[in-house]
Write a protein that binds this DNA or RNA. Structure first.
Lengths: 252, 252
DNA sequence: CGGGCCGTTGACACAAATCAATGTCCGTGG
DNA sequence: CCACGGACATTGATTTGTGTCAACGGCCCG
């Protein structure tokens, strides 16, 4: 099993550290986790429905979706994961998958064995707490997504998604116009928003009228404030602006 | 602070125990958690948006919803919680609420101080694990709800909800016709399903045609198989049929 | 050169929202 | 005891947002 330590898991540690307080030693235990590199191609399931896994995945590069579908095979992407995320961290406590995980674009993953994660979580309650917290942030994003699909029209939905992804990619939104890559097709955008590809296309045309475009997998935002207004977006659920003194550690 | 031990938290312990393995001693630590009783009336928020809480709530009696809304004030209920649930167990690691919690019917809650939960979780990794796992089951229900709203029509959505609630109430679905109480109005049903109250009413009329009725807050199901078919329901995401030998304990 | 994937556009169909009115039940106060 | 108001449920007429179907264009890559 390859060990590609600091170079690889540092972003994950940074993310945990942005919301949780970990000691030097605990941080080192995270960086020391053993990993195995895996490449996945676009549209490749790397976790399938019902599969029981013995490792969690960390995204180094690319874009990953959590896929569900109804009985007619219509797909719904219930979560997107970008570099630094662990899409199935939850599998540590719930190893049988109830959703599939699929790469939307060519992606590089690190597989971290459950045994290792369990080891550090059991030995260091603060790490267990940080991992649990990270899962709960994902869960808050899910809840927000229900609001988005249940109570916003197509234009707002797409705008909201673009706002969310801009924030998660840490695009500095102050100096407009900004642009960032979002490596997905309009088809996949439809699977995220619960719309049809045709309607996504029409909706993007409407968005262009307020200065936000999505072409060749690049999002370009001319007027951030306006996009936020249209998308009815409030970033607080992302928990991405926790100030250092607000970080939490529940065990001493 | 009242201690109403065995009599009260036993159902919560039962639930944890249905998916996780806890030793006698660990089980006792759960039962020994200090609690304070609280009564809430229908439509009363007991956790409001943005509030930072120092305790989690356990539902003894009644029905509780997790409420979000868009900027136009249209409400979306993102989760329902029934007796035995802890609607904001996640607040142990994420004490600032991103959704409100409101009673749908008169409810009895037990407030469990975070300090106590943190104490047992820190001292017993297996308890931390069981609590984390319980949160993740809630999260899977959220994901399934996204599929429901994003990719099913009104009839399926309502049918799916009724199936889910029947299972969670442990209605024994074999001996039809079955009936159970679901203490919510058609209005609240609309807030759960992302529909309008008018359309919920029409949809219920359609459901009646296949032998499922909802009147006076009582659900009556004549043909379970048919309801499952219409609702496109697969209970596996509820993790409610974990056999004893499948229960998990990741720390020794 | 040809075939696929992706994006685009138009005509039309349909599910659900909206608007508005009416009905029923129930608790409360005159 | 009845009148009243309010919450909840029901129904019809109409509008609208989104889905469906179908065709076409651009582009990449084999």
């Amino acid at each position: 099993m390859l060990k590609e330590r600091q170079a690889n898991l540092q972003p994950f540690l940074d993310r945990l550290g942005s919301r949780s307080l970990l000691s030097e030693r605990e941080q080192q235990r995270i960086l020391d986790l053993p990993v195995r590199v895996r490449q996945v191609r676009p549209n490749e399931d790397f976790v399938s429905l019902g599969q029981t896994v013995d490792h969690s995945c960390y995204v180094v590069e690319g874009l990953v979706g959590r896929f569900d579908q109804n009985s007619r095979g219509e797909r719904q992407i219930t979560a997107l994961h970008i570099p630094g995320d662990m899409p199935d961290l939850h599998s540590v406590v719930q190893p049988t998958a109830t959703s599939a995980l699929q790469a939307l674009s060519t992606s590089t993953l690190l597989q971290v064995p459950h045994a290792a994660l369990r080891g550090v979580a059991g030995a260091h309650p603060a790490i267990a707490e940080a991992l649990w917290r990270d899962c709960m942030v994902d869960s808050m994003v899910l809840a927000q997504w229900i609001v988005n699909i249940g109570r916003r029209d197509a234009l707002s939905r797409v705008a909201h998604l673009l706002c969310e992804m801009a924030c998660r990619y840490k695009v500095s939104v102050e100096d407009a116009p900004v642009q960032f890559q979002l490596a997905m097709t309009q088809n996949q955008l439809a699977d995220v928003t619960g719309l049809t590809p045709v309607h996504v296309n029409r909706t993007l045309k409407k968005l262009a009228a307020i200065g936000t475009t999505f072409r060749n997998r690049v999002v370009r935002i001319e007027d951030w404030e306006e996009l936020v207004r249209v998308g009815d977006f409030d970033r607080s659920y992302l928990q991405d602006t926790v100030r250092p003194e607000q970080r939490i550690r529940i065990v001493q």
